[in-house]
């Protein structure tokens, strides 16, 4: 079943085109890794899909429901703000620098949105949060504040916070790029666990081993375009495009 469909997405900043007509599909239960050099537009793609940036052109469909549709000359498709908001809640995003709410305890970071956005009752939300924390191996940190946690712990809380809204697809924007290598491991472990549960995920990453191991499909982006995509086997062992080869060559010691 198709969870996400992006068609011909175009995005420019100050006249410079960052995404030049990206199209991609993500199926239910699939783990997609997006790799590519810095400035290739990977993060911008994720930000556009999560509506943190307004797209210039293109169409984004979530489980058959059109969330955004803009074409040149046609303007924006008439989709009510309410509808967009509802569709968007099916998407979750984990940021590179966590963006936890520093004034809330770990538990409240997780329960705040379920209670005040999804309308869940407090007790129920707290129980769910504790379950998520247990899964993240962080149950004992429920009452701690983000400033008392390590980067790896913060990122795991951020993942729990995103999962608490029960998204259908979870996006990760370089989830380990702000972490020391030894902390990277614990975050990747959690993402692996989610993959094993068939959570639909799109992960922008620089961790090539992780992409090779966990992803069902790898997308290589460069200069705002998808250059190549395929199974990790195809991309890592036998890339067909010169640019992919050059990029991956940089990771060989």
């Amino acid at each position: 079943m198709q969870m996400l469909k992006v068609e011909n997405l175009v995005k420019s900043f100050d006249g410079k085109e960052i995404l030049s007509g990206i199209s991609l599909e993500v199926n239910k239960g699939e783990v997609v890794a997006v790799i590519g050099p810095s400035g290739s537009g990977k993060s911008t793609l994720l930000r556009c899909i999560n509506l943190l940036e307004q797209i210039d052109q293109g169409r984004i469909t979530v489980e058959g429901d059109i969330m955004v549709h803009r074409e040149k000359g046609m303007g924006e498709a008439a989709i009510t703000e309410e509808a967009v908001k509802k569709i968007r809640l099916r998407l979750g995003l984990v940021f590179q620098n966590f963006n936890l709410f520093p004034h809330f305890s770990v538990l409240r970071n997780i329960t705040e949105a379920p209670i005040h956005v999804a309308g869940m009752n407090r007790k129920e939300a707290e129980n769910m949060a504790l379950e998520l924390l247990e899964k993240m191996d962080l149950k004992e940190k429920a009452e701690a504040y983000p400033c008392q946690l390590s980067g790896g712990q913060c990122q795991r809380v951020a993942i729990a916070r995103a999962l608490a809204m029960k998204p259908d697809i979870l996006f990760f924007d370089e989830p380990t790029s702000a972490l020391d290598p030894e902390l990277t491991v614990e975050v990747l472990k959690v993402i692996r666990k989610l993959a094993a549960e068939h959570m639909t995920m799109v992960v922008v990453t620089h961790e090539m081993n992780f992409a090779r191991e966990v992803a069902d499909r790898v997308i290589f982006m460069d200069k705002g375009q998808i250059i190549e995509q395929g199974s990790p086997q195809e991309i890592f062992s036998n890339p067909s495009n010169e640019r992919t080869r050059t990029f991956l060559g940089n990771f060989k010691d």
């Binding site: 999560n50 940021f95 999804a118 995103a162």
Partner: peptide, 15 residues
């Protein structure tokens, strides 16, 4: 990032 985190979690602007 605080605004972005809040926005992806579905909080309204006032919230």
């Amino acid at each position: 990032g605080q605004y972005e985190a809040a926005s992806v979690l579905g909080f309204t602007r006032t919230q």
